[in-house]
């Protein structure tokens, strides 16, 4: 497929497929408004659109990532400017924005479901919690997010205390292994497996 060039590795691909599959099994996409926070090259957004989302809003800080994501969309769904290959062009919108501040900055932004793979790692500690707070602020139904398994207890408390969710509303629906590619120079080890949890946060 032209334009299908992910910067991420294979592990990302498999994990995203699982994430999409799980969310879809709960009926979170068909005819819904979905947001992808920190969309990167747009893989989750594209998956959600392919699974029938009525509209997907994909946010990222990085202009290059957004433009790559847009090219990926055109490569997969066809550019609707080209009538011969008009497949609805995918219902995906891209917005450049500081995802961490989305809930505060965008009071009118309300979606049904958020699906995201927030950055985690040693460089920006706790940034995935900022993403989670933003996601909970805009999602009406549910949030699907990946976090390090080592932070599981913390997230469980965070969901109740900070996000104000009922006990039992935050659940780990899958535990996965993430092979972080060695290209991230700030990691001390050359390549490292990381255990990650796929969380489902039920908002209502």
């Amino acid at each position: 497929m032209p334009g299908w060039c992910w910067r991420e590795g294979k592990a990302h691909h498999v994990i995203h497929q699982i994430q999409l599959k799980v969310a879809n099994s709960y009926g979170e996409f068909e005819g819904k408004v979905v947001a992808d926070l920190g969309c990167g090259t747009g893989m989750l957004a594209i998956g959600a659109a392919a699974l029938g989302a009525g509209q997907v809003l994909a946010f990222d800080l990085d202009q290059d990532a957004l433009e790559t994501a847009q090219e990926n969309v055109r490569g997969i769904f066809g550019d609707s400017d080209d009538e011969a290959d008009d497949d609805g062009a995918a219902q995906i919108e891209f917005v450049r924005s500081d995802v961490r501040l989305l809930a505060e900055q965008q009071p009118r932004l309300h979606v049904d479901t958020v699906i995201m793979n927030p950055p985690f790692g040693t460089r920006q500690k706790g940034v995935d919690m900022d993403f989670l707070r933003a996601a909970a602020g805009i999602a009406g139904t549910s949030v699907y997010s990946l976090h390090k398994t080592s932070t599981r207890d913390f997230i469980q408390k965070f969901a109740v205390k900070t996000l104000g969710l009922a006990t039992g509303a935050a659940t780990v629906v899958a535990q996965l292994r993430y092979d972080l590619p060695p290209t991230y120079a700030f990691h001390r080890l050359k390549s490292k497996d990381i255990e990650v949890d796929l969380w489902r946060f039920q908002m209502s």
Binding site: E93, S97, D98, L101, Q106, R108
Partner: peptide, 21 residues
Amino acid sequence: MKLITHNMLSCPIKGVKNGFP
């Protein structure tokens, strides 16, 4: 940018009260 998106976005500057539409 579609207008469905326009309809959900506001001016992100802190302290702005009427940042929509």
